[in-house]
């Protein structure tokens, strides 16, 4: 123990503790970019890049020995009134081959809006090997009222993908940004709950 009085030692302890508190509050927020970087590097959690990938080098890179099944899934967040489905639900591809598939999208609401479509890949450790050279998910997609269009995604499977991965699922979720996509508390839904008796 030092010669300092109890008061000044206590003050020092408290100051150190407060530093820890501030530091850990910051740590909580630092986990946000750290999480992104970690997922980007490791490919954990099905991290999918939103940047266009370069085209595969040449036809020589195509792995003719095996094929990978690619499945396509489309979901509309919050069950909004949209039509959103892949034209092809499943494709057998050779690693290194470039393919394009189309997603049928229709804004069935009577107003202009903007959507953002977020990709996800399962299994998570395959996400680093599915490269999209062109995708509707790279930018926000404006839609006029009742507009319908087919949107392309061009992709290839990296030949470096593990031999054990035979199926990759590419899933898209459509968010309607006009409403902020966060519904307010719904009195009618609450009414439904209480009438469940």
């Amino acid at each position: 123990m030092s010669d300092l009085s109890v008061e000044s030692r206590t003050r020092r302890t408290v100051a150190k503790m407060l530093l820890v508190v501030v530091g850990m509050f910051g740590f909580g927020f630092a986990m946000v970019p750290a999480y992104q970087v970690f997922c980007e590097i490791t490919g954990f959690n099905g991290f999918v890049s939103l940047q266009p990938a370069a085209n595969p080098d040449s036809a020589a890179a195509v792995d003719t020995e095996r094929t990978v099944n690619v499945e396509f899934v489309a979901t509309v967040n919050e069950s909004r009134p949209w039509v959103f489905r892949p034209e092809t639900s499943r494709l057998e591809v050779r690693p290194g081959e470039l393919h394009t598939v189309y997603f049928v999208t229709e804004n069935t609401t009577n107003r202009d809006t903007v959507s953002q479509i977020i990709p996800s890949v399962a299994p998570g450790n395959a996400s680093r090997y599915l490269h999209k050279t062109e995708c509707f998910c790279f930018t926000e997609q404006p839609f006029e009222a009742n507009q319908s269009r087919k949107m392309p995604v061009t992709f290839f499977i990296d030949p470096a993908i593990s031999e054990r991965t035979t199926t990759v699922t590419l899933s898209y979720t459509l968010f309607d940004l006009r409403d902020g996509d966060a519904p307010d508390f719904d009195e009618d839904a609450a009414g439904l709950h209480s009438s469940a008796l």
Partner: peptide, 10 residues
């Protein structure tokens, strides 16, 4: 002291 601030952040 170490984890309550993390909850506060969340």
């Amino acid at each position: 002291i170490a984890v309550m601030p993390v909850l506060a952040g969340a």
